[in-house]
Computed example of a mutant assay.
Amino acid sequence: MNRAVCPGSFDPVTHGHLDIIGRAAGLFDELIVAVGVNPSKSRLFGPEERIALLERAVADLPNLRVAGFTGLVTDFCVEQDAQAIVKGLRAASDFDYEMPMAQMNSALTGVETVFLPTSTRQSFVSSSLVKEVAAFGGDVSAFVPDFVLEALTSRLPRRE
Rank of each mutant, 00 (worst) to 15 (best):
L152T: 11
K131D: 01
N105V: 12
D146R: 13
N105Y: 08
I85K: 08
T74P: 00
V66E: 05
R90S: 00
M101G: 00
Q122H: 10
N105H: 10
V111Q: 01
P62R: 09
A151N: 05
V86D: 02
V114L: 15
F69T: 00
T113K: 03
D81H: 10
N105K: 06
D146E: 11
T70A: 14
S127M: 13
T74C: 12
V111M: 04
F115G: 10
F115H: 03
L108M: 12
Q80H: 06
D146M: 08
Q83T: 11
L61M: 08
V114D: 01
P100Q: 10
A102C: 14
A135C: 08
Q122N: 13
Q103C: 14
L72R: 12
L152M: 14
S128N: 13
E79Q: 13
A107K: 15
S127L: 06
D94R: 03
Q122M: 06
A134L: 08
T113H: 10
T153Q: 14
G138A: 06
L152C: 12
S126I: 13
N105G: 07
S128I: 08
E112R: 12
S93M: 10
P117S: 15
V86H: 03
T109Y: 10
P117R: 07
Y97H: 07
E112K: 11
A92F: 03
A102V: 12
A84T: 14
I85G: 07
S128Q: 09
V73G: 03
P100E: 03
R90K: 13
V73Q: 09
Q122L: 05
E132K: 11
F69L: 03
V66G: 00
A134Q: 00
F95M: 01
T109A: 15
M99W: 09
T113I: 08
T109P: 07
E98K: 11
D96L: 07
K131V: 07
T109W: 14
L152S: 11
S119R: 12
S93G: 04
V66F: 02
L116G: 02
S128T: 15
A135D: 02
A135Y: 00
V133F: 00
S106D: 13
A134N: 05
P117E: 14
V125M: 03
L64N: 00
A135T: 01
M101R: 04
T120R: 10
D96T: 02
L149K: 15
L64I: 06
S93C: 02
F69G: 03
V73C: 01
G88L: 04
V111S: 01
L108S: 09
I85Y: 02
A142Q: 12
T74N: 09
V130H: 01
N63V: 10
T70V: 15
L108K: 12
A91F: 05
D94C: 00
F147Y: 12
M99H: 04
P100Y: 07
A107Y: 09
L129Y: 07
D94T: 02
E112N: 06
G137W: 07
G137E: 02
P145V: 08
K87F: 05
P62D: 06
L149F: 14
A67K: 12
F76H: 00
L152Q: 11
F95Q: 01
L149E: 05
F136E: 03
V78N: 04
V130S: 00
A102K: 10
T109M: 10
E132I: 07
R90W: 03
A107L: 13
S126T: 06
L64E: 00
A84F: 08
